[in-house]
Amino acid sequence: MKSPVLIAVVVVVLALLAFGLYQALVVAPTEQTMGDVQRIFYYHVPSAWTAFLLFFINLIASIWYLIGRSGDADALAVASAEVGVVFCTVVLITGPIWARPVWGIWWTWDVRLTSTLVLWLIYVSYLMLRRFSTGGQTPLLAAVLAVFGFAVVPFVYLSIRFFRTQHPQPVIGGGGSLDPAMWHAVLWNWLAFLAFAGLLCWLRYNLERKQRGIEETLALEALI
């Protein structure tokens, strides 16, 4: 647990997070129409990208498990899903905090908000299934559910897109005319979050594998 590698990684992640915070709060210029509150963007968007990447890793790991039945693949699946839900929660909470002063409302059934919410619900149900399923089939059932969760994403996006056409346009995206200094802040924060998420995943992955080791030892003892 206290290996020098881990300490080095933690130091690097902390430095990156601190630098990202500095970039977001000090270096990036103030947005003209929204003012300083737009700086939430530098945490909100990189969190979203990180969460989506983690969910994608979960899908790959699940398929890998379904093909190869490898315990490592399942450990990666559970780690990425859990950390993904953490980052997705950040997105869902910072989103309304940003929307309130800018749009004057906490929530709207906009396609991005709602898709993210549904994605979050799917992965929470995935974690619930893992928690509640008994016996050795947990990884398999979870992997199957992950495939369903991925298959439904395009339908979620399409259906919500046509559901409410009068939604306020997302402030970012479409135009893509972001100031280069703002881009720096976004990308630095994304790098920091990716490193942080990687660290969390690694810790969770190790935890899962060690827990399995213990369970296997106990099962063996019970047999003998």
């Binding site: 549904v118 619900l121 799917i122 929470v124 149900s125 995935y126 619930m128 299934l129 559910l145 369903f148 969760g149 439904v152 339908f155 979620v156 399409l158 259906s159 919500i160 559901f163």
Partner: peptide, 12 residues
């Protein structure tokens, strides 16, 4: 718990 999230787009 696992059926509802997947059914959201169909339900909509």
């Amino acid at each position: 718990l696992i059926l509802f999230p997947i059914s959201i787009p169909a339900l909509l």
